[in-house]
Nucleic acid binder design. Structure first.
Length: 522
RNA sequence: GGCCCCAUCGUUUAGUGGCCUAGGACACCGCCCUCUCACGGCGGCGGCGCGGGUUCGAAUCCCGCUGGGGUCACCA
């Protein structure tokens, strides 16, 4: 599988350039975002797949920050990136925060390293001074009948010493471009797409250093990968067209002794939003933290993200983190774009929520209930006791944790504070007052020590179903509304048990009062 | 426009020449379970973009077309 290209290196030498053939523990992958904005699910999916490759092979996962754009980078964004990876449990072996043999791991702190490489590149003739401005390049293309988008024409490659001196005399400062040998074939075998061919001569020289001396992403990204010994580069599909340029740079880096191999590349499919457009940063669904706020648990979101372009098996799509990286193979990543489907995502998340132990689930609910104002912040011991009983009632009813707030709210207020869902009272059947009266009587008759859901059910069934000859639906509907204020609620008898007898009777009283019924048992 | 990538149910994915009258999941629709809603169970709806080849045989291989996307920065 390892590609090996024999290439002629211009007039300098004939070199045998090999792509990495690292396997097992020698595999080194990286995640190298720029800290601009909130973590995007597509970006995190890329991190996830890289992490999975490292864990699958027992290799290393390197976390590097590409903060070379002072205008757009922010410390807040950096913190969010760390937060996102940590939350999902994507731990890194080397990189920011944990250190490692290739420190520093923030590009903003690696300037001296780049300068050194640039000097070597210059000395070996791999880069040259380019004075062309964008306007001049366009003008030359138009003048010679080429489309404007043709791009750079390698004009400055052949500038004489004299011409360079003249430009300098005009006060112009040169950018540095990589000289790509005309006869260099830049094809490669993509880890997810197979052979991709970029014939010799199809790639023009590109800028690697700004006139002010600042190295660009085009240089710094491959240089750091080379310096850090990265063997497999998994990144977004949008970077596919820049791969031939990077391979050309690698040839130069090998020539000057910075590294000895070219990493293998794998281009991951886009994560799409609505329509045929890539999920944009503006789209709320792209925001990882919004999903967390909605109540995705890390296990669930990780599982769903893994499904974006990959499949666990033919008949299963719910799996654990360990099962994921054990089964993951880059070669089985699907090359076509995946659409982010929040319905499916929530279904997967719901499956993970149901798999939680009751205690674990209960604990994870707390922050959501606190921020929704359902319980105090921090939660009181009394509220915690109610929650411990109530949480299991909703565990199989939610697919995201935030849903529990509306389901559980009625348990954390008293009868007078209970709010009724819109239209719920109007929707009650004509016989509702009679049902409520009978229910009240039956419950009131129960000794307090028997106030358990099974006995409550017995009492209510006896009075309403057997006594009034109602269907269970007609019998319990009005009671449910009185107790929860809603049409749909957690299991009724268990809810009554949690509320206790006095509170339950108070709620029945309150709803009966709405109908002007006489107070039972005066 | 040049170059590059992609193409199986609505969505996602299985399928690497015969196991496919194309399998699973989500969504949707029925039914069952049932105190509501869920969960769970059962069933249904629904797909290989088109045209040529290769082959005894093609969703699978080749070519073309069509469609979609990306990229052509002194941004990353």
């Amino acid at each position: 599988m390892t590609g090996c290209h024999r290439i002629r290196w211009g007039r300098m030498s004939t070199t045998s350039v090999v792509f990495s053939r690292a396997t097992g523990r020698d595999v080194r992958v990286r995640f190298c975002p720029s800290p601009t904005g909130t973590p995007h699910v597509g970006l995190i999916r890329t991190a996830l797949f890289n992490w999975a490759v490292a864990r699958h092979h027992g290799g290393a996962f390197v976390f590097r920050i590409e903060d070379t754009d002072a205008a757009r980078d922010s410390e807040q964004s950096y913190a969010q990136l760390v937060d996102a990876l940590s939350w999902l449990g994507l731990d890194w072996d080397e990189g920011v925060g944990v250190g490692g043999p290739h420190e520093p791991y923030r590009q903003s702190e690696r300037g001296a390293l780049y300068l050194e490489v640039i000097d070597k590149l210059k000395a070996a003739g791999h880069v040259y001074e380019s004075y062309s401005t964008a306007e001049e390049i366009d003008a030359r293309n138009e003048g010679s009948g080429r489309p404007k988008q043709h791009g750079y024409d390698n004009f400055d490659r052949t500038l004489s010493t004299q011409q360079r001196a003249e430009f300098r005399a005009e006060g112009r400062e040169p950018a540095l471009r990589l000289r790509i040998p005309d006869e260099l074939d830049l094809s490669f075998t993509d880890l997810v797409r197979g052979d991709i061919s970029y014939p010799a001569g199809g790639t023009t020289d590109f800028v690697v250093v700004r006139p002010n001396g600042a190295p660009l992403y085009t240089l710094v990204n491959p240089v750091d990968d080379a310096l850090m010994g990265i063997t497999h580069v998994l990144r977004g599909e949008d970077l596919l067209p820049s791969t031939p340029r990077q391979i050309a740079l690698y040839h130069a880096l090998i020539d000057i002794g910075v590294t000895t191999f070219v990493p293998r590349f794998g281009h991951l499919p886009y994560v799409m939003g609505e329509g045929n457009k890539k999920l944009s940063k503006r789209d709320p669904e792209s925001n990882l933290f919004l999903h967390r706020e909605r109540g995705f648990i890390p296990e669930g979101l990780l599982n769903y993200l893994a499904l974006l372009g990959w499949g666990f098996s033919a008949d299963r799509d719910v799996f654990s983190r360990e099962e994921f990286f054990t089964a993951f193979e880059v070669s089985s990543v699907n090359p076509n774009p995946a659409r982010f489907d929040h319905k499916k995502a929530e279904a997967i998340n719901g499956a993970h929520i149901r798999a939680l132990s009751a205690a674990d689930f209960t604990g994870r609910l707390v922050p959501y209930l606190e921020s929704a104002g359902i319980v105090s912040t921090p939660i009181t011991a009394a509220q915690e006791a109610v929650l411990a009983e109530a949480a299991p009632l909703v565990q199989e009813r939610v697919s995201v944790l935030s849903e529990a707030s509306t389901m559980l709210a009625f348990l954390f207020v008293d009868a007078s504070g209970l709010s009724y869902e819109d239209g719920v009272i109007a929707a009650l059947p004509a016989g509702a007052p009679a049902v409520l009266t009978a229910a009240h009587a039956a419950l009131d008759r129960m000794p307090g020590r028997e106030w358990r859901h099974d006995r409550i059910e017995e009492a209510l069934r006896g009075a309403l179903v057997d006594g009034l000859g109602l269907t269970p639906r007609a019998a319990f509907g009005p009671v449910r509304t009185a107790i929860s204020g809603r049409r749909v609620s957690p299991p009724l008898f268990e809810s009554l048990q949690i509320l206790g007898k006095p509170e339950s009777l108070a709620r029945l009283d309150r709803l009966m009062a709405q109908f002007g019924s006489p107070h039972p048992l005066g």
